[in-house]
C-alpha cells in the first residue's frame, strides 16, 4: 500500500509532472538478508520544497535515502532524477551522510573535507586552484565555520562536524540536497544555522529531502512530509499529512515514546 503525492490514477498530464520531479522512486524494496527493510516504496518529491522523511526507529528512513542514491543496492525498484536514471544525473545530487558513519580520526582538515564536494568537478587529476579554495571557503562561510578551515576534523564538536558536512554538500552546487539525520546530536545554535541554510536553498528553488527524527519541529521546518514505516504510510504537504491519526498509524504504540525521545534529543 502506498499513497504517493500523485495518485495512481494519474493521467498523462500528471505523468508529465511526475517525470519532471527532482526525485521519484518507484517500487523501491530493500532487504537485509531475509528481513525486509523497505517494501515497495513509491515517492515523488516536490521540486523547490523541503520534505522530511519521518518514522519510527527501524522504519527504513536512512535505508530509503541510501537506496535512492545507490549506496545500498535495492532488491527491486527504480529511481529517477528529473526523469533520468540516477547514473546520468549525479551532478544534480548533494548528499550529507549520517555524521556517525565516517571516521573522524581520519587525517584530513576541514577545508579538505569541503573540497571533497568538488571532486566530481575536479575529476581524478584536476588541480585544486585558488578559485576552488575560494568556493570551499565561501561554503564554510555559509555555515559559519571559516575560522576552523585548517583544523583537523577530529577536534570539532558534533555540531561543527555536521556544519562541515553541510558545507561539503553546498560545494557540490546541486539541485537536490539529501540529508541523513542532519540534526542528530547537534547543539541548538547549529540546528538553527543548518535550517537557515536549508531554507535559503529552498527559496533559491532547490529541493531538500531530509531524514528527521524530531516530530515537534516538523511543521516549523518542512513543507512536505513522508510518513514511513517500511512502506509509505502517507506523503504530502505537512498540514494534510502530519495529522494525529496518520502519525498513530505510522508509529503505533510508539508515538508517545517517539515524542519523548525527540524532546530529550532536542533539549
Amino acid at each position: 500500500m502506498s499513497v504517493a503525492l500523485v495518485s495512481d490514477a494519474a493521467g498523462a498530464a500528471d505523468r508529465a509532472a511526475r517525470t519532471a520531479s527532482p526525485l521519484s522512486v518507484r517500487g523501491l524494496t530493500v532487504s537485509y538478508g531475509e528481513t525486509p527493510a523497505l517494501f515497495s516504496v513509491d515517492v515523488t518529491v516536490r521540486a523547490g520544497a523541503m520534505t522530511a522523511i519521518v518514522g519510527p526507529n527501524g522504519a527504513g528512513k536512512s535505508t530509503m535515502l541510501k537506496a535512492a542514491l545507490g549506496v545500498i543496492k535495492p532488491l527491486a525498484g527504480s529511481v529517477a532524477v528529473f526523469g533520468q536514471p540516477l547514473a546520468k544525473m549525479r551532478d544534480a545530487i548533494a548528499y550529507v551522510p549520517q555524521r556517525a558513519s565516517v571516521d573522524w580520526n581520519f587525517p584530513t582538515r576541514v577545508i579538505d573535507v569541503v573540497l571533497m564536494g568538488l571532486y566530481r568537478d575536479l575529476g581524478l587529476l584536476g588541480r585544486v586552484r585558488a578559485k576552488h579554495r575560494a568556493r570551499a571557503m565561501a561554503c564554510l562561510d555559509r555555515v559559519g565555520m571559516t575560522d576552523f578551515a585548517t583544523r583537523q576534523i577530529g577536534q570539532l564538536s558534533g555540531g561543527q562536524q555536521q556544519r562541515v558536512f553541510l558545507a561539503r554538500a553546498l560545494a557540490q552546487e546541486a539541485d537536490i540536497y539529501l540529508l541523513d539525520e542532519p540534526f542528530a546530536g547537534v547543539d541548538a545554535a547549529t540546528e538553527k544555522a543548518i535550517i537557515a541554510v536549508l531554507k535559503d536553498l529552498r527559496d533559491a528553488g532547490r529541493t531538500v529531502l531530509a531524514v528527521h527524527h524530531d516530530l515537534t519541529t516538523v511543521p516549523a521546518y518542512f513543507d512536505d512530509v513522508i510518513l514511513l514505516n517500511r512502506e509509505v504510510v502517507a506523503a504530502g504537504p505537512v498540514d494534510e499529512v502530519f495529522t494525529e491519526a496518520l502519525l498513530q498509524t505510522t508509529y503505533g504504540g510508539r508515538l508517545e515514546t517517539a515524542r519523548i525521545q525527540a524532546e530529550t534529543v532536542a533539549g
Binding site: 541510501k66 542514491l69 545507490g70 549506496v71 547514473a87 549525479r90 545530487i93 548528499y95 551522510p97 558513519s101 565516517v102 571516521d103 581520519f106 584530513t108 571533497m116 571532486y119 566530481r120 561539503r168
Partner: peptide, 13 residues
C-alpha cells in the same frame, strides 16, 4: 573518499 566516507564516494560516482 573510499577510506573516509564510502557513501559519499558512491554518490560522487
Amino acid at each position: 573518499l573510499a577510506a573516509f566516507d564510502p557513501g559519499f564516494s558512491e554518490v560522487t560516482g
